[in-house]
């Protein structure tokens, strides 16, 4: 045993299993917890248990939620005619932070990747198609700008177009606030390809 306490050792091991956490960080975190007041630790532990017990997937958009349907799907303030399709719940969080999008979401749960054995049936594609009614005006495809995201975009656009609904994809280009000269070459060349007429 490397530690004088079995409990500390166990906690270090648990922390070390988290993504991005190495042995040393795990050790620092464990010792930090040890110094916290008991009630703080109880709140922390309860938060961990809560996300397992209370969080589930929205039956409409497949985003993570505690109430079903989720607060976005059930909000009367959202524009119900626009659905933004994303890969993961964290993408919803990112778009929500902009405060610019007031439509609904659909979380696929990943992107097509044959090498990882992820095909259309492993994503929430059927659920998306079931949501397309006459009231839906536009579907925005907001996949990640990589090969898998691209293939997923192409796949979905093929499926959606016959349903006579407007299908768009988010633009890719330069980060705001950055100067042109600081953009990496690949981003800049994509931005050039995606140029628009004025």
């Amino acid at each position: 045993m490397r530690y004088t306490s079995e409990s500390v050792e166990q906690l270090v091991e648990e922390f070390a299993q988290l993504p991005g956490i190495g042995k040393k960080t795990a050790q620092r975190l464990a010792l930090f917890i040890l110094k916290l007041p008991r009630e703080k630790v109880v709140t922390f532990a309860q938060a961990l248990i809560n996300i397992k017990d209370k969080v589930r997937y929205c039956s409409i958009c497949s985003n993570i939620t505690e109430s079903d349907p989720c607060y976005i799907c059930s909000s009367p303030k959202r524009t119900r005619g626009i659905i933004c399709v994303v890969e993961e719940p964290r993408d919803v969080m990112a778009i929500e932070k902009t405060n610019e999008f007031h439509g609904l979401y659909h979380v696929l749960g990943g992107a097509l990747s044959p090498l990882d054995n992820i095909g259309p049936e492993d994503l929430k594609v059927k659920e998306l198609l079931a949501r397309i009614t006459d009231d839906i005006e536009e579907i925005i495809l907001a996949m990640n700008p990589n090969v898998e995201g691209e293939a997923t975009t192409i796949y979905l656009s093929r499926l959606l177009k016959p349903l006579s609904v407007k299908v768009t994809r988010i633009a890719r280009g330069l980060p705001i606030g950055g100067d042109l000269e600081f953009a990496d070459e690949a981003t800049l060349s994509r931005a050039l390809e995606g140029r628009i007429a004025l």
Partner: peptide
């Protein structure tokens, strides 16, 4: 990615429709 689909189909059969998005990519 595309080769994985092709090798899956050549070994186990399956629909070549899965190839479509990868053709375009």
């Amino acid at each position: 990615q595309r080769n994985k689909i092709l090798s899956d189909i050549s070994r186990n059969g399956g629909s070549s429709a899965l190839l479509e998005p990868w053709n375009e990519t």
